[in-house]
Design a protein around this nucleic acid. Structure first.
Lengths: 342, 342
DNA sequence: TTGAAAGCGCTAACAG
DNA sequence: CTGTTAGCGCTTTCAA
């Protein structure tokens, strides 16, 4: 079964391959007679012709492909979706891309793996990278001449467009919310706090709120390891071990928060009676879990859509660096309560 | 900034492009002198040469690309990840593919959209389709000469390899488990029950177990709509409205089960005291939720890995139809209890 | 052991 | 309005 090519269509329609190409791509300015168009379209249909996008990409230097890189958060961990946030984001990206005629080339990446190849290899029109830290890999990308969008990264580099959220402000908001409800000992639970990472911003926001209320940050209220349900559970143990000094916790990811809650529940504590918890992301999960999570909401669907939009705009010629910061809101659910004596 | 091509490398190394290609692909049988190999490799490094896989695919008819299609479960719903199962599966597929030198072309699909184009377009080496129903779209695929793996589909067609689980048996197991704990009025909660769909198999398994225990299936114990958290919540309302006749429920997806539990909790009922619940899939979520879900476990990571393996084997020449049925086990957690009078 | 030449399927000037 | 001519970057006979 031979694949039917543009030539076959041309022959069938009695025109040249070029004409077929023109009809199919309909560039503004080019003008093909209605009658020829008709004939070509019919031939296409009759032959079930489907253009080979690889070939097109080869000669036209555009592939309608967007590369999406989701870094392996945990080295050694196989799965990128230990945090549902990635799934939801990817979902949004895919949807928007498809609606705009793009396909997605998906790849996880180990930390040690070059980002470039994946992309260069296939001649993608743009790359969306989620949660990148500065480093050698990003350095390599700098030289490439495809638009690159960094999602949730504080790498400031003229070579990259970015899209993020008001991390610091969101964290401040959450912490302030807790303070307003009478809490003064507030835990900060997060993944690793790396420079230029979102967590360090969120930690700042947390400190901002404490400072505004005249509360000194307490080393002992810090719980930081990896963003995972498991660590959440572990943090619960740690919390108990450290003597349960805090009456509330600001947790920088919903998965983590859910783990924490679960760990506490397993130890016979009650939420929010024994510990008020505010999460971050407003992932699907935070509505699902019990008790449902009061959390900092971000518009994940929009984030994905904007990422794709940025790529498209950049590909269309806009060449100044673009930055897009999405707002955050706090959604109240069932995991926080007014502080009272214990 | 011009992309460096194989010719540049050839020039740099003082050999022909052919030789470079040989060195890079190292086909068994071909033999290039160690010295030349050395020179070429060095040139590659110096020039940061990255092969263009599109071009390679064009001339060699293999792309190292696997297309993954995840159907839009709900028409109109944008996101494919309303069920975390898809995310986990995709994750497993991506990981295995990457380890074997393949990239993933990801696409959601509306029901009305042709599956073929997406794939044909890019000359993928194989296609993995999750949860396909028989229909026109599959018909179209039949003609293609790339290996196709259907995941969780009961379409029996010599043209497709399949990978699935013992749906009927799993459902029987779950229901039997409930019966063994004294339950006789057992609800069946699922997405739409379509012919040749997994849910119809699971319904059969459910009936098998009832029959074995001499229990007549009850129309009134059937809750069926869409696989989503939301419908789970809705089903809880419906359950109450219908008079809470059942003391247990077998739910064909964990997300659904979690929704059901949540809906019940919101209405002041207790799990498992008021209703025992068994889920299906053993998605991450089922450990996370409260109470954690007793559920039918399937090895999602393995499922993804097998799907990729099937593609690779088929691409390597194995041409008889392959089928892979994965076993199921029941994991006991906290959502089921012995029946007692109410 | 290596290279020349043809061609994969398509698009992009440039003519006509 | 349409066709001719060159490639895009790579692999693949076939010769040398």
């Amino acid at each position: 079964m031979k694949r039917v090519s543009i030539k076959d269509v041309a022959r069938e329609a009695g025109v040249s391959a070029t004409t077929v190409s023109y009809v199919l791509n309909r560039n503004p300015g080019e003008t093909i007679s209605a009658e020829t168009t008709q004939r070509v379209l019919e031939a296409v249909r009759r032959l079930h012709y489907v253009p080979n996008l690889n070939a097109r990409s080869l000669s036209s230097r555009r592939s309608n492909l967007i590369g999406v890189l989701i870094p392996q958060t945990e080295p050694g961990k196989e799965f990128m979706f230990s945090n549902p946030f990635y799934g939801e984001l990817l979902s949004a990206i895919e949807y928007t891309a498809r609606k705009n005629g793009y396909h997605l080339l998906l790849s996880g990446t180990q930390e040690d793996q070059s980002y470039v190849n994946v992309a260069q290899n296939r001649g993608v029109d743009g790359i969306i990278i989620v949660g990148a830290y500065p480093g050698r890999n990003l350095e390599e990308l700098r030289g490439m001449n495809v638009p690159i969008v960094l999602v949730d990264s504080y790498v400031k580099d003229a070579a990259f467009h970015t899209i993020g959220i008001e991390d610091r402000e969101g964290a401040r908001m959450a912490t302030e919310y807790l303070i307003a409800r009478g809490h003064r000992d507030i835990a900060f639970v997060s993944g690793s706090i790396r420079e230029h990472g979102v967590n360090s911003k969120r930690y700042q926001g947390y400190c901002d709120a404490l400072a505004a209320a005249g509360i000194a940050p307490d080393e002992n209220a810090l719980y930081s390891d990896t963003v995972s349900y498991e660590y959440g559970v572990a943090a619960a143990g740690e919390y108990v071990r450290r003597g349960r000094k805090q009456t509330a916790a600001f947790v920088t990811a919903d998965v983590l928060a859910v783990g924490l809650v679960k760990g506490l529940l397993q130890r016979g504590l009650r939420i929010p009676e024994d510990l008020s918890v505010v999460g971050f992301d407003d992932v699907y999960l935070s509505r699902i879990c019990y008790p449902s999570l009061t959390t900092v909401h971000q518009d994940i669907a929009r984030k994905g859509a904007e990422a794709v939009r940025l790529i498209m705009e950049a590909a269309a010629g806009a060449h100044e660096r673009m930055e897009c910061i999405l707002p955050l809101t706090l959604v109240e659910r069932d995991s926080v309560m007014e502080r009272r004596a214990r």
